[in-house]
């Protein structure tokens, strides 16, 4: 319950406008890391559901294939979260290098200002050009990596839409499993729904951060 409250607080908190790019990327990595943990719990839920459905026998015959879908959903979420985590970590690194390159350019500009009358000021032209080239290269890399990250977040978000259907179908099948197993299977359906909802919140939050990076 407390966890859910914390999550709600985090999600509802307005996005801090002052985040540096690399901090934002690190936040995305952290959010998706949390999503991975939830997906692992979802995978456990699928195993439990399979066991309950097996015990329920014929009455829960319709539930058993659903457990495979829950499993698949958990697998996709875990692998996609890992990929997003990896992409966010690379993006964070690129952002740090980009800030350093931007910083170097800023310092060079100050030098050009302070020493513009120096007879040797032109000796900095070559390294300054190299710094600018590096900055441009990093800029392209940065934009490409944001695109990849955004795409992966969209893909996972769309996969999670299936979770609502999966939860509804699970409830329908649970209602036919008899009194003894009904509660346990409805609980599975609820778990699927709440896990998917939590993960979707993390994704939504990450997508908002990505928008601020563009």
């Amino acid at each position: 319950m407390l966890e859910q409250e914390n999550l709600t607080q985090t999600i509802n908190r307005p996005l801090e406008a002052g985040y540096n790019y690399f901090v934002s990327a690190a936040i995305i990595a952290a959010k998706l890391d949390q999503a991975t943990h939830i997906a692992k719990q979802l995978s456990l839920t699928a195993s439990n559901a399979r066991a309950v459905a097996l015990r329920a026998g014929e009455r829960a015959a319709g539930f058993r294939p659903l457990t495979d879908f829950i499993d698949r959903l958990a697998e996709i979420t875990i692998s996609s979260s890992k990929k997003i985590n990896f992409l966010a970590a690379i993006l964070s690194k690129t952002a740090v290098t980009k800030i350093r390159a931007d910083n170097a350019i800023k310092h060079f500009n100050l030098v050009f200002e302070k020493a513009h009358k120096s007879p040797f000021i032109n000796s900095l032209d070559k390294v300054f050009e190299q710094c600018k080239e590096k900055q441009q290269y990093l800029d392209i890399q940065y934009k490409r990596q944001i695109g990849e990250l955004s795409e992966e977040l969209d893909m996972l978000s769309s996969e999670l839409r299936n979770a609502v259907i999966l939860a509804t179908l699970s409830r329908v099948e649970a209602s036919q499993a008899g009194v003894e197993y009904q509660d346990a299977l409805i609980n599975v359906a609820n778990n699927v729904e709440s896990a998917a909802s939590e993960i979707k919140d993390y994704i939504k939050y990450s997508q908002q951060i990505v928008l601020t990076l563009q």
Binding site: V111, S118, F120, L124
Partner: peptide, 17 residues
């Protein structure tokens, strides 16, 4: 100190030196 320092140094010698 970097920009002040490089600006001061470049008044004395070219960077490649």
């Amino acid at each position: 100190l970097f920009s002040s320092m490089l600006a001061a140094v470049i008044k004395q010698v070219p960077a490649e030196k």
